[in-house]
Design a protein around this nucleic acid. Structure first.
Length: 564
RNA sequence: UGGGGUGUAGCCAAGCGGUAAGGCAGCGGCCUUUGGAGCCGCCAUUCGGAGGUUCGAAUCCUCCCACCCCAGCCA
């Protein structure tokens, strides 16, 4: 068993260790991840997934995957499939413990009958509006339903007939009989079963009554022997009700523990809002690389390892928080720096001609695949008289501290030669640089000058005749504001969307070896960032997503210079 | 003006009566065939506020303030 540094246990682990010490549940730890299959998983769910599965692992327990499918109107198999895929992708295994609340519908029904028999539940004929009207307010107690004192026999009969389908949707409900004047609204005779003549994605038309979350969730936990039922803060108020059901039915007592859900800066994290972005067409789909969904992050190029690392770094507590998205980006860089093979790609090309390099000559130059990991080996990259370099790597009139190419200046081409800029050809009308003429020093092969001569700048490059064309998609934050939901009156969160969150480059140039890249493959493009092959790629057109740019010190210097 | 929670740096977050961990971000410097990476250093005299207890308080007590959640037959 992994031992965690107990000097910094979070409050949940502290609690679990206390339970183990007290031999609660014979020291057993059993958790569950309980998604409702009504949407795609996002990075916020990843926090919960990592928490629940890691806890089980750390304390020699188990973690179940349980679909909370008690509302047939919202749930679909498409979602259960995507959820399973995402959890697996993250790297977690629920083995044979794939459960559904719907697996327990019969058992849950029996529990409800038991409650009725105890006089702790009743069939209520009030309409939804009437129930709402009699619930009271935050400061005033509710009033009891006129049906609250039906006899047990009548309740039993009515509930059975509800199940048989004798009533229409909304005609009657089963309610727990608790306390209409409780200051906790959840305890004011909450509805526990409603009539829904809807086909369920698993149980089909077997049922026309469905249990409510509060009733189902705790009892499912109990049935599965869940020891620690971890959920988010908004359910804190529900805990007394959770406990009430377990106590009244005298079943295994699972313990609900609440933690603060994850919020990330510059994005939104609710299924409803993410759906809205998809439906409004602002993003292309749930797996659009700008989305904080797991499928989006995956397509963007995030690795499961980086996301798990992130979930481990964000901390766990009860206070509302907004984690800086820079931490997520940091985790990806940290992961990819050690693992991503280096390649050269010129995103925005301009041509360099090396005047003194023999026409028609090609050299295969040796390049390391990853300076962080020698075991990743080397590769050959073709070099010739005509090369592409990054347009921004040349400045006719270089600002201070600019180390790159400019007239008369010598720089290094990575793994190749020193070159010196001789002159520039510009479009006479636009003034745009078209070709840069340089000379190279044949004695600097490999990028070293034996005479000890130094250059400040090193550029990446791609040989023109060997280059492969590619489309590169550059992403920026989805929203312009740190908290897109911080709105003025009448404002819609979509007004905070960043109109420049996607920029498409269509004539980027790749070193030839990259033509074999497959969707999902990840690389570091030297000096540019980490990139991932998009599934939109075809045989003759590779598409790359920029997962995250490299840290850019030069950009910071520029920014500072501008501020002055 | 009900109930349930939460306040420690720009963002997370440890801390549990003995004198403010760590990470991200930021800022300096070193190093560098990626302005990447790496390395070194800096970054809370103070813990929402005010009182009190104590030799000693972020930690205990009292009052106050701010923020979040709850009035679905959603989860």
């Amino acid at each position: 068993m992994e031992t965690k540094d107990d000097s910094s246990l979070d409050f949940i682990r502290t609690r679990i260790e206390e339970d183990i010490k007290a031999n609660k549940n014979q020291g057993r730890v059993h958790t569950r991840f309980p998604p409702e299959p009504n949407g795609y998983l996002h990075i916020g769910h990843a926090k919960s997934i990592c928490l629940n599965f890691s806890l089980a692992e750390e304390y020699n327990g188990k973690c179940n995957l349980r679909f909370d499918d008690t509302n047939p109107c919202k749930e679909e198999v498409e979602y259960v499939e995507s959820i399973k895929k995402d959890v697996r992708w993250l790297g977690f295994d629920w083995e044979d413990r794939e459960f559904y609340a719907s697996d327990y519908f019969e058992k849950l029904y029996e529990y409800a009958v038991q409650l009725v028999k105890k006089g702790k539940a009743f069939v209520c004929d009030l309409s939804a509006v009437e129930i709402k009207d009699t619930r009271g307010t935050l400061t005033e107690p509710g009033t009891e339903s006129p049906y609250r004192n039906r006899t047990i026999e009548e309740n039993l009969d009515l509930f059975e007939r509800m199940r048989k389908g004798e009533f229409k949707d909304g005609e009657r409900v089963l309610r727990a009989k608790i306390d209409m004047s409780s200051p906790n609204l959840n305890m004011r005779d909450p509805v526990i079963y409603r009539i829904l003549h809807a086909s369920h994605h698993r149980s089909g038309d077997t049922w026309c009554i469905y249990p409510m979350y509060d009733f189902a969730h705790g009892l499912c936990d109990s049935i599965e022997g869940i020891t620690h039922s971890i959920c988010t803060l908004e359910f804190e108020d529900h805990r007394p009700l959770y406990d009430w059901f377990l106590e009244e039915l005298d079943v295994f007592r699972s313990q609900q523990i609440e933690f603060a859900r994850l919020n990330l800066s510059f994005t939104v994290m609710s299924k409803r809002k993410l759906l809205e972005l998809v439906q409004s067409g602002y993003v292309k789909a749930w797996d659009d690389p700008r989305m904080p969904t797991l499928s989006g992050l995956k397509r963007r190029g995030y690795t499961p390892e980086s996301i798990r690392d992130f979930c481990g770094r964000i901390g766990l507590a009860k206070r509302d928080s907004v984690v800086d998205i820079a931490l997520l980006e940091f985790c990806l860089r940290e992961d990819q720096n050690k693992r991503a093979p280096r390649r050269m790609a010129v995103l925005d090309p301009v041509e360099v001609i090396i005047d003194n390099y023999p026409e028609g000559q090609v050299e295969e130059l040796e390049s390391e695949n990853n300076p962080e990991d020698e075991s990743m080996g080397k590769r050959k990259v073709p070099f010739s008289r005509r090369l592409y370099i990054e347009r921004e790597d040349f400045r006719e009139d270089p600002p201070k501290k600019y180390f790159r190419l400019s007239p008369g200046r010598e720089v290094r081409l990575k793994h190749a030669y020193y070159i010196t800029c001789q002159n520039v050809i510009k479009d006479p009308n636009t003034g745009k640089v078209q070709k840069i003429h340089c000379t190279y020093d044949p004695k600097t092969k490999g990028g070293w000058a034996k005479d000890g001569r130094r250059v400040r700048g090193t550029l990446h490059w791609v040989s023109v005749p060997h280059a492969r064309n590619a489309e590169i998609r550059l992403y920026d934050r989805l929203f312009n504001t740190k908290n897109p939901l911080d709105l003025k009156e009448g404002e819609d969160f979509k007004e905070n969307l960043n109109p420049n969150s996607l920029k498409v480059l269509t004539s980027s140039k790749l070193e030839p070896g990259l033509s074999k890249a497959q969707p999902g493959d990840r690389f570091q493009f030297l000096r540019k960032g980490y990139f991932c092959v998009d599934p939109d790629s075809t045989q003759d057109r590779l598409v790359f997503n920029r997962s995250v740019p490299l840290r850019d010190t030069w950009a910071k210097i520029l920014k500072k210079q501008k501020q002055k």
